[in-house]
Amino acid sequence: MTIRFTPSVVTANDLLSGDVIYLTPHGNWSRIHTDAALFTEQLAAEAALSAAQAQPDQIVGAYLAPARHGPNGPEPAHFREVFRARGPSNYPHGKQADNMC
């Protein structure tokens, strides 16, 4: 039995600001989840992750985060990633303050 790959985006934190960032289809980084490239195949996702991890002077802690298609682009598929894509729930800080979500 093969374990089915969960569609994912490559996410990390920006080295200088610490902000959550996503790898886009153009290979650069965006602060907005819907800009992310959604990988549906494991090999492509892992290759993108490896490429991201080779940029230690820009990013910290890259990993694959589960996501799904949405009307405006990929959307987070787990509540942890929803918070990362939005900001904390007790104050209007983070991305939600900058209309980044």
Binding site: N13, G18, V60, G87, H93, K95
Partner: peptide, 20 residues
């Protein structure tokens, strides 16, 4: 690298959390 830096920043109280 981050692997080299992480123990140094942690010893000085600096974490990387969800948003920052």
């Amino acid at each position: 690298t981050e692997d080299e830096f992480k123990p140094l920043r942690l010893m000085n109280g600096l974490y990387l959390q969800l948003h920052a």
